[in-house]
Simulated assay, not measured.
Amino acid sequence: MANPGNNQAAMFDLKTATALIQPYDGSPAGLDGFVDSVNLLTELTAQAHLGIVLKFVKTRLSGKARSAVPADVASMEALLDLIKQNRASKESPESVTAKLKALKPKGDSDKFLEDVEKLTTELTSLYVKNEIPLNVATKMATKVGVETLVNKITDSDTRIIMKFRNCTWSILQ
């Protein structure tokens, strides 16, 4: 049995690290959460053990995130900078708005509604990243989402209801 005093990893809490750092595949949507969890683990770990944290974090990377990090990366800051540069979303509010306007219902209306909701949520996040307050960003994104629904729904009764609701919402705001 190895002497725990000689084992540098003895002070590294693998259980906490595993709970904090979820596997990351490089998706732009998961970038902020991954960076936040790495920063928290770095703060919770003694300076002497940060090398082990760096090695551990690298094991949690896969896919595009892993390919963005060279084997010889020297620090956690360098690792996070590389991932941020390569995996940050290239989307803009304008591109997501264009995607919303280009959406077309294809057969399953539930799928169409899910797509509108997903893009509306993404649009809200992008507005917030551009320093628009959350309540304003939500209103702006919701307006685009509702306009998409009103313009794209083919059922005339549903369209009338959506137009009425949209009018009511704008009066109430």
Rank of each mutant, 00 (worst) to 15 (best):
L50G: 06
L40H: 05
A88Y: 01
G51T: 13
N86L: 07
L103R: 00
S109N: 05
H49G: 07
V38E: 01
A68W: 00
R87Q: 12
S92I: 06
K90M: 07
I52C: 01
T42I: 10
S37M: 10
D81S: 14
L79C: 08
D72W: 07
L54N: 09
K58I: 02
L61V: 08
K90V: 08
P70R: 09
S92P: 03
Q47V: 15
P70Q: 10
F56W: 09
T45H: 08
L113F: 10
D110N: 13
S67G: 00
K101R: 13
G107M: 04
S27T: 14
S37T: 11
L31V: 00
E91F: 04
K106Q: 09
A48I: 08
L80P: 02
T97W: 02
P93E: 13
V69G: 10
F112D: 03
Q85A: 15
T45S: 12
A88N: 11
V69A: 09
K64S: 04
L40D: 05
A98V: 02
E91Y: 02
G33S: 15
L44H: 09
S89Y: 06
K84W: 02
H49Q: 13
G107F: 06
P28Y: 10
F34E: 10
N39M: 12
F56P: 13
L113V: 11
L44Q: 15
S37N: 08
Q85C: 09
L80H: 02
V69N: 15
P23M: 01
P28F: 09
F56A: 14
L82Y: 13
F56I: 04
D81P: 03
S37F: 05
R60P: 09
F112A: 03
K111C: 04
D25N: 13
A65L: 06
S109P: 00
V35W: 11
P28K: 11
N39Q: 12
V96A: 05
E43S: 10
A71L: 15
K64Q: 03
A71T: 15
R87V: 06
L61W: 04
D32M: 00
A102Q: 11
L80W: 00
L40Y: 04
S62F: 13
A46P: 05
K106A: 14
A102R: 04
V69W: 09
E43K: 14
D110F: 08
Q47N: 15
V35A: 11
V35P: 02
G51P: 00
S92F: 05
T42L: 11
L113D: 00
Y24M: 08
T42Y: 07
S62Y: 07
N39P: 00
Q22F: 04
D110I: 02
L44V: 11
K90P: 01
A88T: 14
A78R: 12
A78P: 00
T97V: 09
L103A: 04
G107V: 04
D110V: 02
K111E: 07
L80N: 04
L113N: 07
P70K: 08
M76H: 00
S27H: 12
